[in-house]
């Protein structure tokens, strides 16, 4: 089990050799209520990747993400984060998490945009310590990155879905993570805001070198944005470049008996 405190030790990231992947899943499986949700998943995320994970509803996408984040434990195989076994991993501030917006928070919670972003530094600041000037600076920097600095004093519940989503990305970026993990981030966000949103992800990936893992069922958009694609349907049915996925018909095969593809495209 993890200790009570999130104790970031800066050494872990450095100790991973340059070649070791940020995330390495070997023979991962997961059962939920007697049902096999994931089976024999082998997947690596390399530094600088922009990995999209797609798959029909119930394919185990969110579960896979939760395993990468240490929110769920794989029942078999190995999970390595930054070259370290997940059970020994303590450097959680290296991984930024953007949860599904709908389940993420109570809209009436009394917190400003800045407070929400600052809370992303909670683990970095350390237990029983107040936020330092450096924490505030990092939070403000993250807000500027997502273009929301002018909203810093606004109540989080008073923003549009697209704006909230950007604030949650800023919160994840506040701890200056090497890896950003996003779960269906564009659900409930209108098309125009979605475009801005993917622009932001592109910049993070290309200009800052942040490694991205993005789960979505929006196949069309994902295939156009990511550098690596993983098609998941309880097990990994494809892992490679998006061009290859289209050429080999991997996406079409996965959705063949599944009308979800049609219903999910807006």
């Amino acid at each position: 089990m993890r200790t009570f405190e999130a104790s970031p030790t800066a050494s872990t990231a450095a100790s991973a050799t340059p070649a070791s992947p940020l995330v390495a899943l070997e023979h991962v499986c997961f059962r939920y209520g007697g049902e096999q949700v994931l089976h024999e998943v082998n997947l690596e995320v390399q530094i600088g990747d922009f990995l999209g994970i797609i798959g029909p509803n119930g394919a185990g996408k969110t579960t896979l993400l939760r395993i990468m984040l240490g929110l769920a434990r794989s029942e078999c195989g190995h999970v390595r984060l930054f070259g370290q076994d997940v059970r020994a991993f303590r450097d959680w501030h290296q991984i930024g998490y953007v949860p599904q917006k709908a389940v993420a928070f109570e809209a009436r919670f009394p917190a400003s945009v800045f407070e929400v972003v600052l809370s992303g530094r909670t683990g970095v600041a350390g237990l029983a310590r107040r936020f330092s000037a450096a924490d505030r600076e990092a939070a403000l920097g993250a807000l500027e990155t997502v273009g929301m600095a002018e909203y810093r004093d606004r109540l989080i519940g008073r923003l549009s879905s697209g704006q909230q989503q950007r604030v949650f990305i800023a919160r994840a970026l506040a701890s200056q993570p090497a890896l950003l993990v996003l779960d269906e981030p564009t659900v409930g966000v209108d098309v125009e805001a979605q475009e801005q949103f993917y622009g932001l992800l592109r910049r993070l990936n290309r200009e800052r070198g942040t490694t991205l893992v993005l789960v979505s069922h929006d196949v069309g958009v994902i295939a156009a944005e990511v550098t690596r694609l993983a098609c998941l349907n309880r097990t990994l049915v494809f892992h490679g470049s998006p061009e290859e996925a289209i050429r080999t018909g991997a996406i079409a095969r996965m959705y063949r008996d599944d009308s979800l593809l049609v219903t999910h495209r807006h």
């Binding site: 089990m1 993890r2 200790t3 009570f4 405190e5 999130a6 104790s7 970031p8 984040l69 240490g70 929110l71 303590r90 959680w92 501030h93 991984i95 998490y97 949860p99 389940v103 993420a104 809370s119 992303g120 909670t122 683990g123 919160r171 701890s175």
Partner: peptide, 9 residues
């Protein structure tokens, strides 16, 4: 959930 992702129990 976000607190858990930061490593808090």
């Amino acid at each position: 959930e976000f607190a858990t992702s930061l490593g808090y129990n």
